[in-house]
Nucleic acid binder design. Structure first.
Lengths: 335, 335
DNA sequence: ATATCATATGTTAATCTTAACATATGATAA
DNA sequence: TTATCATATGTTAAGATTAACATATGATAT
C-alpha cells in the first residue's frame, strides 16, 4: 500500500501553510491565483486526497446516507434504492446499505446501532420495526420512511395509498363482474404482506364483497411461491373467479401453475398483479397489474432527506404518490 | 435534533478522565470493574455513542467497504451483494454501495474518486473499467474483483470459469446432437455480455461447431429483451436447433416468444439459460440452465477482503468457483 | 523499612482538516 | 504622511478519540 499524503505534506512541498492549501482545495476566493495553481499541481502530482474522516470530524457531516431495506434482492426495493442513489449522488452523498433480510430482529438491531454509524440521514424502506424505535432515531438523525407512515413532526414519509391501490384493483374486478376474489399474498410478517392483506380486507368490506379464508394464501415472495399458492387454492376448492396477487412475481407463478393444470387465464380464472415489474408485460397472457412507482418513490425520498439536511427543513412531509391500474389481458369480464 | 454527547461529557459526568471512559468503552482490562460499570451506566443514560469520524481518523479505519456494481437491480448482482454483506457484517464492516448503472464512464468516474471515500477496502463486481485504473486503486486500497481477473499481486479475483461454463453448456448441446447453436446475449458493452460472447466463440471453436452471425443477437438484459431477440432470430431465418441465452431472464423471454409464435420448446427448438435464477425452475418447460453461485461468490469475495484488511495478507488470490449444469426440460436430444 | 510490583487512573500527543482570527504588504485616499 | 483598505497568507483552536507515557496508591517481598 502506497503512502497517503496529508495536507501538511502538500503545504511543506508548496512552501505555504496548511490553510493556504485548504483554501486552494476548497476554492475560496482569498487566494492568489498562481499560488492556487501551484498547489493544485502538487496535489495532482502526489495524488493527494483530503482525509474524509478528518473532514467528517471537523465538518460534522459524513456525506453518507444509510438505507435500511428488507431485501435488496427484490425488484421493487432495488429500484427504489436506485432512485435514491441517483438523486443523492447529484449532491455528493453516498449510500450505506443495510439489508435486514426480512428479519424483524435484525432491523431492530440496525435501529439500535444506527447512531454509531457516521451518517447524515436515514431512509427506511417498508420498515417493520417498532414505531417508538424509529421515533427515537428520528430525533437524532433526519429520517425518511418509504412505504410506512408514523405520525410525527420529525419523520417524513413517502408512500402510495395502499388502500386506494388495492381498492382500485378490487373495484375494477367488481366492475368486471367478479365477486369471489382470492388473494395470494407474500410471506406473513413481511411488511408489504401485512400492508396488503390489511387493505385487501378493508377494500373488500368497503366494496361489499365477501372473502373466503380458503382463498387467501400466504406464500414466499417468488414465482415459485405464486405457483404453490395457486395449487393450494385449487386444492382448497376455492371458488373465486379472480385472484389478486401481491406482486407480479406471485402473479406470474400463479399463471404458470394455472397453465400446468390446464386452467386458462383469463378464460377460466382472472389474475391480477401488483408492481408492474418483472416483465409482466410479456407473460402469457400479459398481466393486468398495478403500476407501482418504485424508482420515483426513491427519488422523492432522497429529495426529502436532502431538504432536511441541506435546507434544514423542520416540518415533516407526508407524500402520497399516485398509482394507476395497467389494463392488459389477464382479467376477463364475466358480466 | 437532540444534543450529541462526547467522551468529554461522559468523563466530566463520571468524574474521571477521558481515557478512563475510553477504557470502559473499549473493554480493556486495566480498569476497575466498578468504575467501568458506573461509566457504562452514564453512557446508557445519556445515550452516548463514540463519534465514528473521530474513531476512523484516529484508528485509520472506517469499517466501510465500497462495492462498485453495474446494476443493483439485477438478480445476480443483488445476490452477490447479499453474500458480501452477510459476511462483512459478522466482522463489523458496512457496505457503501456505488451503482454505475452499466455506464463505463460512470464506473471510471467512481474509480477516479474512490480514494476520496473513507473506505477500508473495495469490491468491484463485473467491472468494465480500464485495467490500469483498477491497478492504480489496488495499490492504495485492498481490492477484490468479482467476475474479472487482472494479473497483479495486489488484486484478488473471485470468478467462475466463464469459458468452461459456456463450454459445458455447448458440449452438452453437442452431445444431444445440436450443431447449429444460436446465442442470445445481453446488451453490448456490459461486462457479462462481453465475457459471455467471448467464451461462446471460443467454446464453439473448440467444439468444432460453426456459428452463424445471424443467430447471435444482443439485446437488453430482460425478459422483454429475450422475447425481442427470439423474434429477431426467427425473422433472420436462423436455422439453429438450440439457443443459449446469457441469462435465465433472456431465456424465459425467448420461451415466451416461442410460445406466442406457436413454436414449441423443446420440441421445435431447445433453449438454455444461464444463472439458475428468476424461477427458471417453474418456467414452461422448466429451464435447463447453468447454476451460477452468485451468493457464494459474494461470500468468498468478502472473505478475501477481510483477510487482506485484518490479517494483512499480501499475496493475491485468484479463486475459481465450480459451476454445474442443471438439467431440466428445455433441451431435447435430436440424435 | 525500603524496593518492587500490580492496579487504576490521569496527561498529553497524535490523527487531519477547516474556520476563525491574526498579520503583513502594498495601494489608495484624505 | 498617515489612516484605511484589500489581498494574500500564516497561526491556532476545535473537532472526538485512542495510545503512549506518566503518576499515584496500596500491597508484597526482601
Amino acid at each position: 500500500m502506497v503512502k497517503k499524503y496529508t495536507i501538511k505534506d502538500i503545504a511543506k512541498k508548496a512552501g505555504v501553510s496548511v490553510s493556504t492549501v485548504s483554501r486552494a482545495i476548497n476554492n475560496t476566493d482569498d487566494i492568489n491565483i498562481e499560488t492556487k495553481y501551484k498547489i493544485n499541481e502538487i496535489i495532482k502530482e502526489l495524488n493527494y486526497n483530503p482525509n474524509p474522516a478528518a473532514k467528517a470530524l471537523v465538518g460534522r457531516s459524513s456525506k453518507y446516507i444509510a438505507i435500511i431495506v428488507p431485501n435488496i434482492h427484490h425488484s421493487v426495493i432495488s429500484k427504489m434504492v436506485q432512485g435514491i442513489m441517483t438523486k443523492l449522488e447529484e449532491y455528493g452523498f453516498d449510500v450505506l446499505l443495510l439489508d435486514y433480510n426480512e428479519s424483524r430482529e435484525k432491523e431492530e438491531y440496525y435501529c439500535s446501532i444506527i447512531d454509531q454509524k457516521m451518517i447524515d440521514g436515514l431512509i427506511m424502506i417498508t420498515s417493520i420495526a417498532k414505531a417508538e424505535d424509529i421515533l427515537a432515531i428520528s430525533r437524532k438523525i433526519p429520517t425518511v420512511l418509504i412505504e410506512r407512515i408514523i405520525e410525527s413532526e420529525d419523520i417524513d414519509s413517502v408512500f402510495i395509498d395502499e388502500d386506494s391501490a388495492m381498492y382500485q384493483l378490487l373495484e375494477y374486478l367488481k366492475k368486471k363482474g367478479h365477486h369471489n376474489i382470492g388473494f395470494i399474498n407474500g410471506e406473513k410478517g413481511t411488511s408489504s404482506a401485512e400492508l396488503r392483506i390489511k387493505s385487501y380486507f378493508e377494500s373488500m368490506n368497503k366494496l361489499n364483497l365477501n372473502y373466503d379464508e380458503n382463498c387467501i394464501i400466504h406464500t414466499n415472495w417468488s414465482m415459485l411461491g405464486g405457483r404453490e399458492a395457486f395449487n393450494k387454492l385449487i386444492k382448497n376448492k376455492c371458488e373465486c373467479t379472480a385472484i389478486v396477487c401481491a406482486s407480479d412475481q406471485l402473479a406470474m407463478g400463479a399463471i404458470g401453475a394455472a397453465y400446468t393444470l390446464g386452467i386458462s387465464v383469463p378464460k377460466n380464472i382472472s389474475i391480477l398483479g401488483f408492481d408492474n415489474f418483472d416483465d409482466g408485460l410479456i407473460s402469457i397472457p400479459p398481466l393486468t397489474t398495478l403500476d407501482y412507482p418504485a424508482y420515483k418513490m426513491g427519488e422523492v425520498a432522497a429529495d426529502c432527506i436532502l431538504e432536511k439536511i441541506k435546507d434544514g427543513r423542520i416540518k415533516s412531509k407526508k407524500i402520497i404518490l399516485p398509482v394507476s391500474l395497467i389494463e392488459r389481458d389477464s382479467v376477463k369480464s364475466i358480466i
